[in-house]
C-alpha cells in the first residue's frame, strides 16, 4: 500500500512541478553568479560567495535560499493536501470502505510526506550540483572551519545536508497533516500550514520573544551548515532533529486522535 501511495504522489503534476522548480532554484543562482559575478566575500546568502570558486557550493547556497520559505511551502502543500485532498475529492470514503484502515492510511500518508520532504531537499541539492559542475570549476571543498574535504567527501556532505534539511521539515509536515485532518478543504489546510511557517519566522525574528525561539520548528533550519565543519558539530543539528521528533510526536498523535474518530461526511 505504501508503494502505491508513493507512486500516486509522485505521479501528480503539482508534485512534479514543485520538484522541478526546486531543482531550478540553485540553477538560477548559479547562472546569476556566472553572469553577474558573485557577491563580495561574506556578502549575500551563505555560501553564495563561494560558488564561483567551487560549483559544489551552488547546492549549499540553494539549500540556504530555499529553506526559509520555498521548501516549507511545498511541504505545506503536500502535507495539507494529504487527508483533506482525499476528503474533498470524496475518495476518502472509498479508501476507508476499501478498507484501508484509518490508522494505516494516516501512516502511509505520513510516510509519503516524509519521502517527499527529503526528495524536495535533494532536488535542490542535485540542481545545485548539476549547475555548479556545469558552470564552475569543482574541486576539494573548503569547509567552514578552514580544513578542506576531498570532492567526493564534499558532495557526500552536501547530500547529507539535504537529507538533514528534508528531515528538519518534518515538524512542519506533522502540523500540516494535523490541519489536514481538521478541515475538509485542501487549499485551506495548505494556507494554514504555510501560515504557521510565516508565523514561526516572524516570532523567530523578534528578540523580545527569545524565550520561544528554541521551540520554533524553524529555529535551527540553517544548522545543516555545521556538516561542513571539521569535526562536525552536531549540537545544532541534533537539537533541530530532536525538536522535529517532538513536533511529529505531538501533532502526529493529535492527527491520529482526530482522524481515527471523526465522522467522514465528505
Amino acid at each position: 500500500m505504501w508503494r502505491a501511495e508513493l507512486r500516486h504522489l509522485f505521479r501528480r503534476t503539482v508534485v512534479r512541478v514543485q520538484l522541478v522548480v526546486l531543482f531550478l532554484v540553485p540553477v538560477l543562482l548559479a547562472v546569476a553568479v556566472k553572469l553577474a559575478g558573485g557577491p563580495a566575500d561574506g556578502q549575500g546568502p551563505s555560501f553564495l560567495d563561494e560558488v564561483s570558486h567551487n560549483g559544489v557550493f551552488a547546492a549549499l547556497a540553494g539549500l540556504t535560499v530555499c529553506i526559509p520559505f520555498f521548501l516549507p511551502l511545498t511541504v505545506a502543500v503536500v502535507a495539507g493536501d494529504s487527508i483533506a485532498g482525499e476528503a474533498s475529492l470524496g475518495t476518502l470514503r472509498y479508501l476507508l470502505t476499501r478498507p484501508s484502515g484509518r490508522a494505516r492510511l494516516l501512516a502511509v500518508k505520513a510516510l509519503a510526506v516524509v519521502v517527499y520532504s527529503v526528495a524536495a531537499a535533494l532536488a535542490v541539492a542535485l540542481g545545485g550540483l548539476a549547475a555548479g559542475a556545469a558552470l564552475f570549476p569543482v574541486g576539494p571543498v573548503l569547509g567552514l572551519s578552514g580544513t578542506s574535504f576531498s570532492l567526493a567527501d564534499g558532495i557526500g556532505r552536501t547530500l547529507l545536508a539535504a537529507v538533514v534539511v528534508g528531515l528538519s521539515l518534518l515538524g512542519l509536515a506533522a502540523v500540516g497533516m494535523f490541519v489536514s485532518t481538521l478541515i475538509g478543504s485542501p487549499v485551506g489546510a495548505m494556507v494554514i500550514t504555510a501560515g504557521t511557517v510565516v508565523a514561526a519566522l516572524v516570532v523567530d525574528s523578534v528578540p523580545q520573544l527569545a524565550f520561544a525561539h528554541p521551540w520554533l520548528f524553524s529555529h535551527d533550519w540553517l544548522a545543516f551548515g555545521d556538516l561542513l565543519r571539521s569535526p562536525v558539530t552536531w549540537g545544532g543539528i541534533g537539537r533541530d532533529l530532536l525538536l522535529q521528533v517532538g513536533y511529529v510526536a505531538v501533532f502526529g498523535a493529535a492527527a491520529w486522535a482526530r482522524f481515527t474518530t471523526r465522522d467522514v461526511l465528505a
Partner: peptide
C-alpha cells in the same frame, strides 16, 4: 488500480 492497492 489505486483503490485495489489501497487495502487487503
Amino acid at each position: 488500480a489505486r483503490f485495489d492497492a489501497a487495502g487487503p
